[in-house]
């Protein structure tokens, strides 16, 4: 599997897009720090960008990579390699290269502004960790969509819709249901609902770590009340890991039945 991972990774490093993505984050980091030299404030601004952007990039790259690497996949399938190895290798290669672009791209400007000497270093690491989680989650989800749709246009459409659902529509539905069912106790429902959206979950995780209760929002506050800060963080990390594990398992199962 390491070999497949290595070649997928090389292949991606060859493509211009990894560098565009890296350059984008680097630029973003420098601009943010230039406009707002307070590291912890810049971290918060960055959070709002990361929880929306990393899922989007993961989704788009995931689905694009799946369709573009079809030749590579077919070539590998005719070799003596296990199917699950091929897909797991490609998945990890893609997720790792995207995560590296994120970590290096943001790491360089923040390191240059002396993040290691400030108190915001823990928060910054949490931020990168949640971006990495989201990348791994959304790449897995979009690969699932790719495996399920041979039609590129359809696959692309579904993938974008999936991202839109988690990034925007989910929150909307959640808000509406809170208003409609405002007369009932909704604590447990709200708590449960936030577990089913990895974007919400990572936002809560970051905010719990940042200890900014003002920004926590309804579900975040519930999380804190129910579990306390530390257990809250632990639970959100655990559920995020499940969010990686389950789609990856589904992807591997799907790949075993697919015709090439």
């Amino acid at each position: 599997m390491i070999k497949i991972l290595k070649y997928s990774f090389y292949d991606l490093m060859r493509s211009r897009w990894s560098y565009v993505y890296l350059a984008f984050y680097m630029l973003l980091g420098f601009v943010l720090l230039f406009l707002n030299s307070d590291l912890s404030k810049a971290t918060i601004t960055l959070m709002n960008i990361i929880v929306v952007l990393t899922p989007m990039i993961g989704t788009i790259f995931g689905i694009m990579y799946f369709y573009n690497s079809r030749e590579f996949t077919e070539l590998l399938l005719s070799q003596p390699v296990k199917r699950s190895t091929i897909f797991l290798g490609q998945y990890l290669g893609l997720s790792l290269s995207l995560s590296m672009s994120l970590i290096i791209g943001l790491g360089i400007p923040f390191l240059m502004y002396g993040i290691t000497q400030s108190d915001a270093v823990g928060n910054f690491i949490t931020l990168l960790a949640s971006g990495t989680f989201l990348t791994f989650i959304f790449v897995a989800l979009s690969l699932n969509i790719g495996l399920g749709n041979s039609n590129k246009i359809k696959g692309f459409g579904y993938a974008i819709l999936m991202w839109l659902f988690f990034a925007v529509i989910y929150d909307g539905l959640f808000m509406i249901s809170l208003i409609v069912f405002g007369d009932y106790p909704l604590d447990k429902f709200a708590l449960g609902a936030s577990l089913f959206n990895p974007i919400d979950l990572s936002r809560i995780m970051i905010l719990l770590k940042l200890e900014i209760s003002a920004l926590l929002g309804y579900t975040g506050a519930l999380f804190q009340k129910f579990f306390g800060t530390n257990l809250g963080i632990l639970i959100s990390v655990g559920v995020l890991l499940l969010w990686i594990f389950i789609p990856v398992m589904l992807m591997l199962r799907k790949s075993l039945r697919k015709d090439f």
């Binding site: 690497s69 030749e71 590579f72 077919e74 070539l75 005719s78």
Partner: peptide, 23 residues
């Protein structure tokens, strides 16, 4: 079925020669 080791003994020349483009 569900095996892959047997492909060590098979060479395959696909119909359309499509390869990873960046290599």
């Amino acid at each position: 079925k569900r095996s892959w080791e047997y492909r060590k003994d098979i060479a395959y020349l696909p119909q359309i020669a499509r390869f990873p483009e960046n290599l």
